[in-house]
Design a protein around this nucleic acid. Structure first.
Length: 202
DNA sequence: CCACGGATTGGCT
DNA sequence: GCCAATCCGTGGA
């Protein structure tokens, strides 16, 4: 049985958030829009855990906005921020854990022409823009056209899912503090693939 | 009920 | 490098 290119199962997601975060690196996120298929290789993630992490949206308990994070892993948590941007998270852990992995950057693989349209509403002007397509949490949601419509999407379904791919070796994973937060800033819960040009920031 | 500020981005200095 | 744009969820009154 070929393990590569198989859709990840529920049991992948229901584990500890830090393990899932690191193992998501290198995996392929896929979104189907009718006959169109968008996909990208996950290059950068951050873990959030409401039980000990003040920066997590679940730190103060369940609300209408974060309730999907309190369910079992394997669903999409999408939120809207700064009046402009959507961010896309993979819910992890057992029911009640309040944990998720923020997808911060992907490397575009298929449907790149559609991503360019979604992001810029026009053709690429130059080669440099290629690396600006999906190199940030808000950017990749725009490129993949992920909005609140996709809140709670079951990742074992056919709309949005993740394909298996060999694990990235530990020595190729860079660990650092998370970006853009004020609380719990010292937790080393950001992980990215070394040397990947789509990572949002060094 | 209302004021605050955010898991960002891009444009301007 | 710095800062404004731009909503709405959240929490304190």
């Amino acid at each position: 049985m070929k393990k590569s290119n198989q859709k990840l199962k529920k049991s992948f997601y229901t584990r500890n958030v830090l393990i899932v975060a690191k193992e998501l690196l290198g995996k392929i996120i896929v979104k189907r829009d009718g006959s169109k298929i968008l996909s990208g290789r996950i290059a950068e993630v951050e873990a959030y855990d409401g039980s000990i992490d003040q920066a997590a949206h679940t730190f103060r308990g369940k609300t209408e906005r974060n309730k999907i994070m309190f369910g079992a892993g394997g669903f999409l948590y999408v939120y809207f921020t700064y009046g402009n941007h959507y961010c896309c998270n993979i819910v992890t852990g057992e029911e009640g854990s309040g944990t998720a992995v923020l997808i911060r950057a992907v490397e575009p693989l298929t449907g790149i022409d559609i991503m360019i349209k979604n992001r810029f509403g026009r053709d690429l002007l130059n080669e440099k823009e290629k690396f600006n397509l999906t190199s940030g949490p808000g950017k990749l949601c725009r490129a993949f056209a992920i909005t609140m419509d996709h809140y709670g999407t079951d990742l074992t379904g056919d709309d949005i899912y993740i394909l298996n791919s060999p694990k990235i070796k530990p020595e190729e994973i860079v660990v650092s503090r998370r970006i853009g937060i004020i609380k719990s800033v010292d937790l080393p819960w950001r992980f990215y693939i070394e040397e990947n040009p789509y990572v949002s920031k060094k």
